[in-house]
């Protein structure tokens, strides 16, 4: 791989993997539910980056979907879904905070019973 001719799929994929790992680490390590949600946003962005990278640098000559731009459409849907997820997730955090005055995920364990 040519590090200085940065116009290849691998650069973007490795960057996406790094961001994904960063987000996953945040999800696993942090207790604060808001930060967990933001880490999830980072992971989603890493996925988006992968979609766009493969859309720009396809590995096959013809897209099975008809156009490589379907990757862009997928990203569009991910963004919309992320907005929905963030709104519902934050609403849940507010509701839980009302009853428990805490946003720490390791204290949300009532579902186990």
């Amino acid at each position: 791989m040519d590090f200085f001719h940065a116009h290849q799929a691998q650069h973007y994929l490795v960057l996406a993997a790094m961001l994904f790992a960063l987000g996953a680490a945040g999800v696993v390590l942090r207790r604060n539910a808001i930060i967990v949600l933001m880490s999830i946003e980072v992971m989603l962005n890493a996925v988006n980056l992968t979609f766009l990278a493969f859309s720009r640098f396809p590995l096959v000559p013809n897209s099975p979907m008809g156009s490589f731009l379907s990757g862009h459409a997928a990203v569009f849907f991910v963004i919309a879904t992320a907005a929905a997820e963030a709104s519902v997730g934050l609403a849940i955090i507010i509701a839980v905070f009302r009853s428990r005055t805490s946003v720490n995920v390791d204290e949300f364990d009532t579902l186990k019973l």
Binding site: V27, V28, L29, R31, V105, D106, D109, T110, L111, K112
Partner: peptide, 14 residues
């Protein structure tokens, strides 16, 4: 294994 700790689930998922 099912102690309600979401992060432990996530660790196992990972």
């Amino acid at each position: 294994f099912q102690n309600g700790d979401v992060q432990r689930y996530l660790a196992v998922t990972a």
